[in-house]
Simulated scan of single mutants.
Amino acid sequence: MDREEAVAEGTTRRQELADAAISTLARAGMRGLTHRAVDEAAGVPTGSCSYYFRTRQALLQATVERLAEVDTADLADHPVSAEPVDIAQVAAVTADLVERWVTTGRERMLARYELSLESTRRPELHAVLVAAGKAHRAVAQDLLTAAGTSDPPSQAPVLVAFLDGLVFDHLAGAGELRLTTDELRKRFFDLLYGFTRPLHP
């Protein structure tokens, strides 16, 4: 095996282990996340996870980075056009993301909640999560700019928070909010319509 093949194999194995860590977090929570548990979830020999990620912090960081990588792939399915878009299109994109993240992306979201809580006790992990979240806010700002809202930089974090809140309520909230795709689109449309109004003096 030449060096390039070895590097590619190592990258693939790291991704497999990070994916297994995401599944482990979703299933067993932060306490259940151990190097051995990740090995078992990935179906690899014992010691594989600790070989690639020597410490718990290294494993947590790799998991956050993998979440960001997969989220970026999700967002790439809805590229922002260079041409102006209308708020109905933006509402459809964001509603589709919520739908995806509470179904096929459920594990990822649950893992993210576990990591977010852990980050309140680990400043170094919080820094990684903040860096990953910047990509989401940048995409939201691009969408709002293309839609011609009144203040995309300040409105983008609100849109992301609204999206996050809907996902959380669907998966782990105490409420009974269960919106259909059409209802989600309407809620996002209502929010975005408000964003198009002139700013108050």
Rank of each mutant, 00 (worst) to 15 (best):
A111W: 10
Q155E: 04
T72C: 02
E16H: 06
A28M: 01
T103E: 14
V64C: 15
Q155G: 01
T196E: 12
S119K: 01
A28F: 04
A76Q: 12
R3Q: 13
E99G: 15
A140S: 10
F168Q: 03
A127V: 02
V38I: 05
T34M: 00
V158G: 03
V85W: 02
P153M: 06
A156T: 02
T145I: 08
E99I: 00
S50L: 05
A92C: 00
D96Y: 01
E118I: 00
E114H: 08
E16L: 13
A21C: 04
L143I: 12
A58H: 11
R100S: 15
R121V: 06
V64E: 11
A135C: 06
V44Q: 02
R197C: 11
A18Q: 06
L159C: 01
E183P: 06
R3H: 13
L17R: 07
T11S: 06
A88K: 02
E118C: 08
G47D: 05
D164Y: 05
L59T: 01
T24R: 00
M109K: 09
P152C: 14
G10Q: 12
R121H: 14
L159T: 03
A91T: 00
P79Y: 11
A95S: 15
V7E: 15
E118N: 01
L129Q: 13
A21L: 11
L33Y: 01
A172W: 03
H78I: 05
L59Q: 00
A127P: 01
A146I: 10
E40V: 15
S154H: 05
R197D: 08
V85F: 02
D2L: 13
P45Q: 09
T180Q: 03
G29A: 09
V158N: 03
P198A: 08
G10V: 02
A147N: 14
T196D: 08
R106Q: 14
T55A: 04
D39R: 05
R137S: 11
S116L: 15
T72Y: 00
E176H: 10
T72L: 06
E4M: 11
L143E: 12
D96K: 04
A88M: 02
V44T: 14
D182P: 05
S150V: 11
G148F: 12
R56V: 09
V128C: 05
S154W: 00
R3D: 12
S23P: 00
L163W: 14
T34R: 02
D77G: 15
P201V: 09
T34C: 01
D71W: 04
R137Q: 15
T181M: 09
L159P: 04
A76S: 13
E176C: 06
S154C: 02
A91R: 00
T196C: 13
A76M: 06
V64T: 14
G148R: 13
A135E: 14
E183I: 03
G148A: 09
H170W: 05
S154T: 10
S150I: 06
L67Q: 13
T63L: 08
